[in-house]
Design a protein around this nucleic acid. Structure first.
Lengths: 324, 324
DNA sequence: TTGTACGCGTTATCAT
DNA sequence: ATGATAACGCGTACAA
C-alpha cells in the first residue's frame, strides 16, 4: 500500500498538499491538484486508516453487542446496524456477549483500546458506573439500560394486545411463558399480560412460568404447564422462539393448534412463518429499530451537541394459523 | 484513557521501561517492575491499540465475509469464527456482501486501510488478481475460491449419500433443486445428484431445477415441478433452507410428507428440526468448519512460514421425519 | 497557494 | 538495567 509520502514525491509536492486534496481542505492550485490526483490514481493510494484514527483519536467503527447471533431474533438486527453503519462509512463489529458480564467488559475494553466510535447494546450486565465513565456514545437497543438512550418497542401494550387477541378468539384460560427477569422487554411483556388478565377470577400465579426466551425453556415449560393445567386453552409466549417451542410441545402433547390450544408469540421473526401451523405474533419493526439505533449512534458521534431522546416503536398483530 | 507517558511519569521511569514491562521484553529490575505495575494499575492503563497497530503495520482483527447473516446457515458459522478469533485476542468484523462484487471490493479496501490481519471468505466475486495482489491471508470457507486454501465439506459424496437414502427409503423418481451455479458447494451437490441418478432410465433433465439456495426459490420450483411431474416422489434440496421451502410447498399442494413425497436437505441447520415434519438432511459440522477456518487464518498470520493445506470435512445423514 | 514540522501512542534500536 | 529517540502514516498549525 502506497503512503502519502510516495504520492507526494511522485506528484512533486509536499505531503501537506496531498493531504489537502485528499480531504478537500484549504486552497489548492487547480494545476497541482491535478498532478496530485494523477499520482493518487497511479499509485492507487488509499490513506492509512490507522494513522488517521491515531491522529483523530476516534475511529469510524461501531460495535453491536448481542447475546447470541445464533438466536434468530438477532441476525436481522445485526444486518440493520451493519447496513446503516456502512452507509455512513463506518465499520461494523459484532460482539456476542452470552449475557456474560466478564465477556462484555472484556469486549468493551478491547474496543476502547481501538478507540471505537460508538456502541449499540442489546442488554448489558456492565455496571452502570463503568458505562458512564466510558467516553463513548452508547445506545440501548431492544431492551432498556437504566436511563440511557434507547430504541425499543412498546412491549407492555403489545403484550396486552396479544392477550386480548387470544381472548377475542375465544380463549378462556390464558397462560404466559415469560422471558428473563433482568431483561426489560420480558418484564414489560409480563406486566402487560398481568395487566390484561391478572384480575380475572380464573387467574392463577401458576399460569405464569419462565421460559428464558429459549426454545427449550418454552418447550419444557409448556409440557409441565399443560400437565398440571389442562384447562389452559391459550398461551402467550414472550417471544417467537418460545412460541415455536410451545407449538412443538403442543405437537408432542397431541394438542391441536389452534383448536385445543391457541398460541401467540412476540417479535415477528421469519421462523414463525415456517412452522406448521404458522405462528400468530406481535410483529415488531426489527430492521427499523436496528437502523434507528445505528443512526442515533452515528448522529451522536458526529454531532455531539444535539439532544437525543429515546424512541419507542409500535408492534402490530400478525394473525397467522396458531390462533383462531 | 491514560497513556504510556503518564504511567512513565507516575512510576518515575521512561516510557521504554513501561513498554518493556507491558510486553515482557528485555531486562527489568524487579523493583522498578513493581513500581511500573503499580502505576499501571493505579491509572488503569491500557495500551492504545491503534498506536500499536500503526507501529506494527498489522492489526489483530479478522473479518468474515458472508452473503447475508439473515440466511440461517450463517449465524453459527459467524459465531464459530468470532469465538475462535476472540480466543486468540482478535477482534471480529462481520461483512454482509450480498454476493455483490462492488460491496465486496469496498469492504476489502476498507479493511486493508485498517491493516486487517486476515479474512475468512464465504464465496467471493472479487477478481482473483485483486485477491492475489492483496497482502492479507485469506481462507475460503464453505465454498472454494479458485486455488486458495479452503475449509469445506465433501459436498459431492454427501449428495450421493442423500440421494441413496431417498432410494433406500423407496423413492423411484427423485428430483433435485439446486443452488447457484457460481457456488462450488451447489455445483458439487448437483454433481453428486447426477452421479447418483443421471444414468437411471427414468431420469430427465426436467427433474433438475434451480432454487438459488433460497426458501422462495425452492417453494416456487417445487410447485412447478410437481405440477409438471406428479410422478416425483422424492426431492433432494441442495440446502436446508430450500428443503424447508419444499416442505411448505408440499403442504400447500396437499402432499403428505413423507408418504407422498420424501424430502431431504443439506446442511443440518436448526431450522430443519422445527418444521413439521422435521427435515431429514445431510448435517455438516458447521461450527467446526468455521472454527477451523479461523484457526488457519490465525495460524497464517502468526506463523507465516508454515505450509497450509485445504481441509475437507464429512457430512452425516440426519434422519428425521421428512423421509421414510 | 504551498511547505515544514510537530504530535497522535507505541515499540524497537542504540546508547549509556 | 534503563533512557533517549526514531519510526509507523497522517493531519494541521504555522511559516513562508
Amino acid at each position: 500500500m502506497a503512503t502519502i509520502r510516495e504520492v507526494a514525491k511522485l506528484a512533486g509536492v509536499s505531503v501537506a498538499t496531498v493531504s489537502r486534496v485528499m480531504n478537500k481542505n484549504g486552497y489548492i492550485n487547480d494545476k497541482t491538484k491535478e498532478k496530485v490526483e494523477a499520482a493518487i490514481k497511479e499509485l492507487d493510494y488509499r490513506p492509512n486508516d490507522v494513522a488517521r484514527t491515531l491522529f483523530k483519536g476516534t475511529s469510524k467503527m461501531i460495535a453491536l453487542f448481542v447475546p447470541d447471533i445464533m438466536n434468530p431474533f438477532f441476525p436481522k438486527l445485526a444486518r440493520a446496524v451493519e447496513d446503516t453503519a456502512n452507509k455512513s462509512g463506518y465499520t461494523f463489529i459484532l460482539c456476542n456477549t452470552d449475557n456474560d458480564q466478564e465477556k462484555e467488559m472484556k469486549y468493551l475494553h478491547t474496543l476502547l483500546q481501538k478507540t471505537i466510535g460508538g456502541v449499540v447494546m442489546v442488554s448489558s450486565s456492565i455496571p452502570l458506573e463503568t458505562l458512564n465513565k466510558v467516553n463513548v456514545p452508547i445506545v440501548a437497543l431492544d431492551r432498556e439500560i437504566a436511563d440511557m438512550i434507547s430504541v425499543t418497542v412498546n412491549n407492555r401494550t403489545g403484550a396486552i394486545e396479544a392477550v386480548r387477541h387470544l381472548q377475542e378468539t375465544g380463549c378462556k384460560r390464558i397462560a404466559h411463558i415469560s422471558g428473563p427477569e433482568d431483561t426489560t422487554s420480558a418484564v414489560e411483556r409480563k406486566k402487560g399480560y398481568l395487566e390484561a388478565v391478572g384480575q380475572e377470577n380464573w387467574f392463577s400465579e401458576e399460569y405464569l412460568i419462565p421460559g428464558e426466551y429459549t426454545f427449550d425453556g418454552a418447550y419444557q415449560a409448556t409440557k409441565e404447564l399443560i400437565k398440571k393445567h389442562p384447562e389452559i386453552d391459550g398461551i402467550f409466549a414472550a417471544n417467537d422462539l418460545m412460541g415455536v417451542g410451545v407449538l412443538k410441545a403442543a405437537e408432542a402433547l397431541d394438542l391441536r393448534v389452534p383448536e385445543d390450544l391457541s398460541v401467540i408469540g412476540y417479535d415477528g421473526i421469519e421462523l414463525g412463518e415456517i412452522t406448521t401451523p404458522a405462528l400468530t405474533t406481535m410483529g415488531q419493526p426489527i430492521y427499523e429499530i436496528g437502523k434507528r439505533a445505528a443512526e442515533i449512534i452515528i448522529d451522536r458521534m458526529e454531532n455531539n451537541q444535539k439532544e437525543f431522546a429515546s424512541e419507542q416503536y409500535n408492534v402490530q398483530l400478525i394473525h397467522r394459523q396458531s390462533t383462531k
